[in-house]
């Protein structure tokens, strides 16, 4: 009897990848124009491979959970693979998201993309 799946709740209550990353070499800041959520994605890339990823998110439970998912999925991938992560793959990790919350996963994808862009520019 709950709005979110257990997997979403676990991510929301115990996210593993939150926090500022001081030595990040790519940072992506995004805001959701619809609901006002704000998200920052930090990545540390070494030899095109994302070694570390973390987030800071001011947003709903779904925004926090999807932020955690995108970081987890990005770690270990090279930048090209990371850019190919889809909403569908992310939502699969949570089993499902309420329809009105699907846009949260696109925000996370956009955040990661911006962080990778930032890394490419810094190179």
């Amino acid at each position: 009897m709950s709005y979110y799946t257990q997997k979403t709740m676990d991510r929301f209550l115990n996210p593993k990848h939150f926090g500022e990353m001081k030595d990040a070499n790519g940072i992506g800041k995004v805001g959701n124009p619809r609901c006002g959520d704000q998200m920052t994605v930090y990545i540390k890339v070494e030899g095109e491979k994302i070694k570390e990823a973390s987030f800071q998110t001011l947003g709903c439970a779904a925004a926090i959970a999807t932020s955690d998912v995108i970081c987890e999925m990005a770690i270990g991938k090279n930048t090209k693979e990371a850019l190919a992560i889809t909403e569908k793959e992310m939502i699969k990790k949570l089993e499902e998201l309420p329809a009105v919350k699907v846009h949260c996963s696109s925000l996370a994808i956009e955040g990661l993309k911006k962080a990778i862009d930032d890394y490419q520019k810094r190179k």
Binding site: M9, F12, G36, D37, C60, A61, A63
Partner: peptide, 20 residues
């Protein structure tokens, strides 16, 4: 919304004016 959901997890029901 995240505040409300976290409180709900503790058994506490409230409401919010958040867009989310």
């Amino acid at each position: 919304e995240s505040l409300m959901i976290a409180l709900d997890r503790e058994g506490i029901a409230v409401s919010t004016g958040s867009a989310c």
